[in-house]
């Protein structure tokens, strides 16, 4: 045997390609139906930070606190990804500011909470007061 005949290979590839394309089509037509593209689309995560971005410094270090724990050490994952997602989406929206987790000594501190009613508790826990709220209290600027 010096090789597989092209026609034999073509039949096999046709079968595998049909299965692969069918899987892709299922995903786009059934799992995430394309006709619901615009009415079921989630807002971009960065929209949450548009207002606060306007009042933060353009660059530099800004402290970051939250009511959700962040997986901040390799090998030690928190039970869910909420806190990590909140931090990462804030960092993505606010770059080139560097958000420093747990740092409460910077001039302003960003609070980013899952539950707005926990905001005051988070601020007090770090010896800070809430200066300004955004997004219904889910995002806030804190100061000493």
């Amino acid at each position: 045997m010096t090789g597989v005949p092209l026609r034999t290979a073509a039949r096999a590839v046709a079968l595998l390609a049909a299965v692969g394309v069918a899987r892709e089509a299922y995903f786009h037509l059934v799992s995430e139906p394309v006709w619901h593209l615009f009415d079921r689309r989630e807002p971009r995560a960065q929209e949450r930070y548009l207002a606060v971005r306007a009042v933060l410094p353009a660059a530099g270090r800004v402290g970051y606190v939250s009511d959700e724990p962040v997986s901040a050490r390799p090998g030690a994952l928190e039970s869910d990804e909420w806190g990590t997602w909140l931090y990462q989406s804030a960092q993505y929206a606010l770059a080139p500011i560097v958000l420093v987790i747990g740092e409460a000594r910077t001039e302003v501190v960003l609070a980013n909470v899952k539950e707005p009613d926990r905001l005051e508790v988070v601020a007090r826990a770090h010896g800070l007061r809430v200066e300004r709220r955004f997004e219904g209290g889910r995002v806030a600027l804190l100061r000493r």
């Binding site: 997986s71 901040a72 990590t84 931090y87 990462q88 960092q91 080139p96 560097v98 958000l99």
Partner: peptide, 15 residues
């Protein structure tokens, strides 16, 4: 000119 902030060790390591 502050582009080196991209590599700050203070950013969460998942970046």
């Amino acid at each position: 000119d502050g582009f080196r902030a991209a590599f700050s060790p203070e950013i969460l390591f998942w970046a």
